[in-house]
Structure formats: structure tokens, C-alpha cells
């Protein structure tokens, strides 16, 4: 039987600004992507169900005016949907329950966390139990970082990956959980997907390797089933060799690290959906 090529949704508008390259990374990985305007989701929430994979790209939703992604998070949590009970977050939960995937990058990660969709302990998305806030440096920074994948994480996007090199570009990327207990659960239940490391691959709290001072050097987390994932680094910024900051001086071998993440999503979709 010939399987159909998976379809994916890349959100854009209202301050999202990485849609072009995210769209392209989807395409290179094998998906049929569509760009969907963010306001359209609240008007036609059912729209998402024809897709297999949703990416919330980076950017500045509403200018990060009430704190990163907060304004959009409020709309997804509290704005009455047209002709339908419930809120848009509930729709996303249904989407994931169908075995489908959601990836939030940078501002998209902030949005998932502030909507309660990550870490989603006990599969509860009503409460926000973690946040991403101002970097310890007090500055927005564009910087390439060394990353390590948590081998025990169920995250489908990071399966069989170990160490990655990707850029971060954010001012609010410091991961904080609401209390020690939540942090302990995030750690012990393997919600940690990706951590900042030094050049040698050792998880670190030292600036600038850990660019923001995140607890546990967290760069990305996932939900319990590993199908919702958020990360601060930008995989869509490294889908070809020439994106690497040192391609003029180093041999860059193999597939670009960012592309690997989208290819994992693709493999999952083709095998499971």
C-alpha cells in the first residue's frame, strides 16, 4: 500500500516571523506544508484536524507585549470559539490524542508552556506550571549553542539523536518551574528533552554555553507521550550546510542538525499515521 504523504501546518501572522524557513524545512523533510494564518484557527478550529503535524514557529506574537506569547496564550485559553464549545487549547489536546504531533520553536515553545500544554504533567493542561522568562543576561541574544538530547526522553522529534548544534535567538528563554516538586517531576519523568552543554557535551549552567540560566540547563521539553515538544533553539535555522556558522573553516558532515528534527517528525508520521 502506498502511504499518503503527511500534511503539516505552519502557523504564521500576528508577529510570527520564522514561517518561511519553517515551511521550507517541512518541505525538505518530506511534508506537504500549509501556511495558516493564526487568527483563522480561532475562527475555524476544526481546520487543524486535517493535518498530521503542527509547528508553532518563532517570532514575537503580539510583540511579546504582555510577556512572550502571553497575549496569544490567553486567547487560546479563554477566547470563546466560534460555533463550538470550549477553547482552542482543548482542540490541540484532541489533536495530540489522535496520535499527532505539535512542535513549538522559541516563541512557539513559550506559547505551549504558557497555554499549559507543556510539560502537561498528568496530562493536565489547565494550569501553567512552568515558564520561560528573561535571560539572566537581561539581553536578547543570537548565539549558536551546543545541545544534548535526553536519551530517556520519549520525544519523537529527538529519537536517535544525541548531540546537536543550533542557534538560539531569544530574550526570554530561561526555563523556570513553579516549584521544586514540579521541577523534580519534569526531571524524573523525563520531560526534559534537550539541554545546553559546553563544547565537550557536559550539561552546564555556565554562560554563554547555557545562554539564559535555565533550570537544569533546559533547552527543550516534551509532554509525557513525547508528541508535544517545545524548544528554544531554532532547528529550522539549520536545514542546509551553509547555515552552519563555521562552514568556511570546518568540515561539516552529515545531515544538518535542524533538519534531523523535522525528518524524525516525518518518519513518525509516515509510520504511525
Amino acid at each position: 500500500m502506498i502511504k499518503k504523504r503527511p500534511k503539516s501546518l505552519v502557523l504564521f501572522g500576528n508577529g510570527i516571523n520564522c514561517e518561511k524557513e519553517t515551511y521550507f524545512a517541512h518541505k525538505v523533510a518530506g511534508f506537504y506544508p500549509d501556511l495558516v494564518y493564526v487568527n483563522e484557527l480561532l475562527e475555524k478550529p476544526n481546520l487543524i484536524h486535517k493535518y498530521d503535524f503542527i509547528t508553532l514557529p518563532g517570532g514575537f506574537l503580539d510583540g511579546d507585549d504582555l510577556g512572550s506569547a502571553r497575549a496569544q496564550a490567553i486567547k487560546w485559553k479563554y477566547q470563546q470559539l466560534k460555533g463550538k464549545e470550549g477553547f482552542f487549547v482543548d482542540e490541540l489536546v484532541k489533536f495530540v490524542a489522535d496520535g499527532k504531533l505539535i512542535l513549538g520553536i522559541c516563541n512557539g515553545f513559550q506559547l505551549l508552556v504558557k497555554c499549559g500544554l507543556l510539560p502537561r504533567l498528568d496530562e493536565n493542561h489547565k494550569d501553567q506550571v512552568a515558564t520561560l522568562t528573561f535571560n539572566d543576561s537581561g539581553r536578547f541574544e543570537n548565539r549558536w549553542v551546543y545541545l544534548k538530547v535526553n536519551k530517556n526522553s520519549p520525544c519523537v522529534f529527538l529519537q536517535d539523536l544525541d548531540r546537536l548544534y543550533l542557534p538560539i535567538r531569544h530574550g526570554e528563554g530561561k526555563f523556570i518551574s513553579i516549584n521544586e516538586k514540579v521541577l523534580a517531576r519534569i526531571r524524573e519523568e523525563n520531560h526534559i528533552a534537550l539541554q545546553y552543554t559546553d563544547k565537550e557535551g557536559k550539561v552546564t549552567q555556565d554562560y554563554p554555553y547555557n545562554p539564559n540560566g535555565s533550570q537544569e540547563a533546559i533547552a527543550g521539553i516534551c509532554d509525557k507521550i513525547g508528541r508535544i515538544c517545545g524548544l528554544m533553539p531554532h532547528p529550522e535555522a539549520y536545514f542546509e550546510k551553509l547555515h552552519h556558522p563555521r562552514w568556511t573553516r570546518e568540515e561539516i558532515e552529515g545531515e544538518p542538525d535542524g533538519l534531523k528534527i523535522f525528518k524524525n517528525a516525518y518518519s513518525y508520521c509516515t509510520e504511525n499515521l
Binding site: 521550507f24 535567538r169 535555522a237 556558522p245
Partner: peptide
């Protein structure tokens, strides 16, 4: 560093090398 110089994934030689 405080300017995003890589968004749109097209900057193949960046201002810092």
C-alpha cells in the same frame, strides 16, 4: 549579538565569524 542576524535562514556568512 542582540540583533537577530539569522531569522529567515538565509544568512550564510554572518556578521560574526
Amino acid at each position: 549579538r542582540q540583533y537577530d542576524h539569522e531569522v529567515q535562514a538565509q544568512t550564510i556568512i554572518k556578521p560574526l565569524v
